[in-house]
Structures are given as C-alpha cells and as structure tokens.
C-alpha cells in the first residue's frame, strides 16, 4: 500500500515504463463520474493533491489525453508480439528444414531444403505465433482470468459511468472523498466497505 505523499514530487514514471500495477482490492475510495471531462478534471485534482496510485475505469478505451496524467502509460505488449513473430518464423522454418533433413524422402529430384516454398510456412507461423503471444501477453498484463470482478467494481463502468479509484491513508479518507466530490463525482464509495 503506497501512502499518499504530502508533497507533489511524486512525479509519475516516464511514459512507457510499466512496472506491475498495484493489486486490485487495494483501493480505498472509488468515485463515479458521469462524463469523461469530469473524470479528467478529477484525475488532475487527485494527481495534484499528491496521490501516486490511482486507477480509472471507463466504458470506452481511455482517451490518449488522459494517459499523460496516469501513473503508467503505454504498453510494452508489442515487444511480446515481435518476440512471438521471431519465434514463429524460427519455428516455422526450423520445422520445414529439420523435418526435410531428418525425414527426407528425396523425391522428384528436388533438393530437400528449398527455402522458397518454406517462406510460406515461415510467414504463416510468424503471424500465428505473434498473435498467440500477443493474446497471452494481454492475458498476463491485464490480469485476465475467468473470475468475477472484485467487490468494489461498479457495473456502471461497462455502461455509462466513469470511475476513479484512489489509494490513500485511512485517516485522509474523508478529505480525499471531499476532494473527489468537489471535482464532480456523482457518488463516492468506500472500497473497504464494499
């Protein structure tokens, strides 16, 4: 649990850096908003108040303008895709070359290792592995598992509500809740009670 910093020097990490996100269920307050602007405004307020860890829920893909104000930005998933692609092309070509060397039935006067036709298999394997690695990476990074969302999740977040989760010291809860309300939250929920 990261305590709320009193000062404002808790600058978010540089864009692109993504350490593991805090475990869910570790939020103290959850505020509901009814527009993206209100949410954006509240995020700025919370950040300026010195919060280091906060999380946003949105029924749509979060807007790029918000990313700059979040603790973590971007994603490294594409490296995993690229790694998958390289694995794929290696596996595809290796499968063709090794299998025709090890199990070579020399037929039709053709050389056993013939790269031109193997390019097709190599290409398809590149795509296949890259896609599988991407999805596996997403499952890992976004912590996807076939379980119900935690109790402090609000069903409105998949419909028409925006949410802002904040970590803070228990003592500061009322003050932060007040700040959230002032920033335009339609509702503020105590996550520990949810």
């Amino acid at each position: 649990m990261t305590p709320t910093r009193p000062d404002n020097e808790a600058a978010p990490g540089p864009a692109g850096e993504c350490p593991a996100p805090p475990r869910t269920g570790h939020w103290q307050l959850c505020a509901e908003f009814d527009s993206a602007e209100a949410l954006h405004h509240a995020v700025l307020q919370v950040r300026d108040a010195g919060a280091r860890e906060y999380e946003v829920c949105s029924p749509v893909l979060t807007h790029e303008s918000l990313e700059a104000h979040m603790p973590r930005a971007g994603s490294r998933l594409h490296y995993i895709s690229a790694f998958g692609g390289i694995t794929g092309v290696s596996v595809g070509l290796a499968m063709c070359v090794l299998s025709s060397l090890l199990y070579g039935l020399w037929t039709g006067g053709k050389p056993p290792v013939n790269l031109v036709p193997f390019v097709v298999v190599g290409f398809e394997c590149t795509i296949l592995f890259a896609a599988l690695f991407t999805v596996a990476g997403l499952v890992y990074f976004a912590r996807l598992k076939p379980l119900a969302p935690p109790p402090d999740y609000r069903p409105g977040f998949s419909n028409d509500r925006y949410g802002l989760y904040v970590q803070c010291e228990p003592a500061r809860k009322p003050a932060v809740a007040e700040l959230l309300r002032a920033a335009g939250a339609t509702e503020v929920i105590d996550c520990d009670a949810a």
Binding site: A131, V135, R143, L144, P149
Partner: peptide, 20 residues
C-alpha cells in the same frame, strides 16, 4: 475474463488490438 474496464487493462488492450 474478469474484464473491469480499468485503465490498466485498456492500455494493454489497445496495444493488443492494434497488434492483432
């Protein structure tokens, strides 16, 4: 898959979608 519409999910999701 326990989707919660969280930013921490969306930012990777967006990248995965473009990659695919």
């Amino acid at each position: 898959l326990g989707w919660q519409n969280r930013y921490e999910q969306w930012r990777h999701y967006a990248r995965a979608y473009v990659a695919l």
